[in-house]
Amino acid sequence: MDTQIFTEISLSEILVELLLMPVIAFLVGLVMVLWMRKIGARVQRRIGPPLFQPLYDVVKLFGKKTQVSHGVVHDIGIVMAMGGYIAAETLLPVPGMNGIAVYGGIITLTYLMMIPSLGLALGVGQCANPNGSIGISRALTAMLAYDIPFVIIVFGVAFHHETTNLVEIITQQQQAGIASWGAVQNPLLALAGLATLQGMLGKQPFEIYIAPAEIATGPMVEMSGKYLGGLFVMQAFQLYTAAVLYVSLFLGGGESWFELLAKSFVVVSIPMMIAFVFPRYRTEDLVRLFWKWPVMIGLLGVAFVG
C-alpha cells in the first residue's frame, strides 16, 4: 500500500502541492478569522467587521514603518511560528492534494504543530517582558492540559483505523459513507475532541494566557508591526489546521473543497459560539477541568473503539 503511494507521486506535482497547500490554508484561515469575529459580533448583537478585515489587519501590520525588535531570537521566533505552520499544512491532506502526508502521519503532525508554539515561546522569551513570560508559562501549562485528551483522541482514531496515515484515515471514512465517520463510530471521542479544540484555539473560557487586562495579552505584549502580523498569520493557520484536522478525524474529510470547507466552518463555529458567552478559568482550574472531563470521556471513547 505504502510503497505504491511512494512511487506514484511525481516531483513536480508534489512541489505544486507544497506551494498551494499553505497558500490555500492561509486564505481559508483568514476567512475563518473573519467568521470567528463575525460570530462574536453577532453574539454580542453587533454588526462586526467588514469582509476583508483580517486581510486589512495583516497588510497593515506588515506595512508598519517602525517596529521594535528585541534581538535575533525575537525575529527567529516569529519566523519559526509562521514557518512551522507553513510546513504543517503540507502534512494535512485536503481534497485533491496529499502533500507529504504519507511521509509523516498524524503523530508527526501533532508534534510538528508544537514547533510554531516553541518558536513563539522563544521569541517572547527574548522580549524580556515578564508579562510575556507569564503568558508563555500559562500557554505551556494549557498545552499540557489539553494535549492529554488530544493524544487520547489521536490514539483512539489511529487505533480504530489501524493506521497513523491521515490519507488512509480519510479514505476509509469516505469509502464507507457517513456511518463510518469518526463522529458516528466514536461519538465520545468526537465530543472530547470538541473540548480539546476549544483549548487548542485558546478561546474563552481557556484564554488565561492572553488575559488582556491582567498580563497585557501575554505573549503578544511586545509584538509590534510585522511581529504581530506574523502572529495574525499564525492564528489564521491555527484555525484552519485545527478545523481541518477535526474534520479529517471525525467528519470524513472532504471529497470536494466545498464539502471540506462547509464542514470546517461548522466546526470552528462551535468553539466561537461557546467562547463569547464565557468568562475565563484560572490556570489550575483549566488544568483540572481538562484532566478530568475530556480525559474521562476520551478514555471511555477509546474503550468503545473496537
Binding site: I47, Y56, A216
Partner: peptide, 11 residues
Amino acid sequence: MERLGVQPMVT
C-alpha cells in the same frame, strides 16, 4: 466601532 475596522488593543 469594529464595523469601521477599529478595535481595542492592549499595549
